[in-house]
Amino acid sequence: MVATILFYVFAGLAILGAVMVIANRNPIYSALSLILTLFALAGIYVLLMAHFIAIVHIAVYAGAIMVLFLFVIMLLNIRIEEKAPGAFRYMILIAAPMVVILFYELATVVFKAFSRAPVKQTNVGSVESIGNALFSQYVLPFEVTSVLLIVAMAGAVYLAKRRLNTVKE
């Protein structure tokens, strides 16, 4: 009973936040709305007893959105963005029917695939089960991902460093 009410509260907040991300002209508000959405999703994970996923969700995305936030403050000129209300005026004529079709398709697929509610498993989101899965069954994808991340990081550092040198010369 309480769980059902909480689910609808979190689901509503998630959708509200998602709509506000695209509806706001000010990118700062968009970033903050994104946090609201992610928080609501974390709440739903907690309701499914996946505490670990919920917390990692918050930890990872909170940091990521913080960086987004700083980009907005430092690189975008928010005043100009805010003063361009009619920039996409005629887009709505195409966008509205597209949205209706997209959501109709999504709804059909979701209701066909999950005609019954998924069974709530009590231990799938615990630290032990995720750790066991990551380091036994999925150890190769896990390690490959970490190598991929290191390569991406090295690439980013190399690109940034090269531009620094040309500035100095």
Partner: peptide, 12 residues
């Protein structure tokens, strides 16, 4: 059971 991770996540 995520104890310390919870603190790190919320504090950030």
């Amino acid at each position: 059971d995520v104890g310390i991770l919870y603190i790190v996540a919320i504090a950030s």
